[in-house]
């Protein structure tokens, strides 16, 4: 574990999590969520849980982002929340 690398990753994770929750444009929120997933994947890979990291990269960041974009495509793009 390299603490400086960890610190950068964790700060970015918190920032992307807050941004993806607060942003109004749903497509941007989805992409930020994908970035969040990739950062989590990096963190897990760095901690040695390579299988989990791989699954997160394939499922969390890849396919579920596509699913969310496909769903938003059929609804409205703006969040009313």
């Amino acid at each position: 574990m390299i603490w400086s690398y960890d610190a950068i990753l964790l700060i970015l994770i918190v920032i992307t999590a807050i941004v993806s929750l607060s942003i109004k444009d749903l497509i941007s929120a989805t992409i930020t969520l994908g970035v969040f997933s990739f950062l989590l994947c990096l963190l897990w890979a760095e901690m040695g849980a390579v299988d989990v990291a791989f699954t997160e990269a394939a499922v969390g960041a890849g396919v579920s982002t596509v699913f969310l974009v496909a769903t938003i495509y059929n609804t409205t793009r703006k969040s009313s929340d």
Partner: peptide, 8 residues
């Protein structure tokens, strides 16, 4: 993982 990448 392999299945998801194939689907992707």
């Amino acid at each position: 993982q392999g299945g998801v990448i194939l689907a992707a």
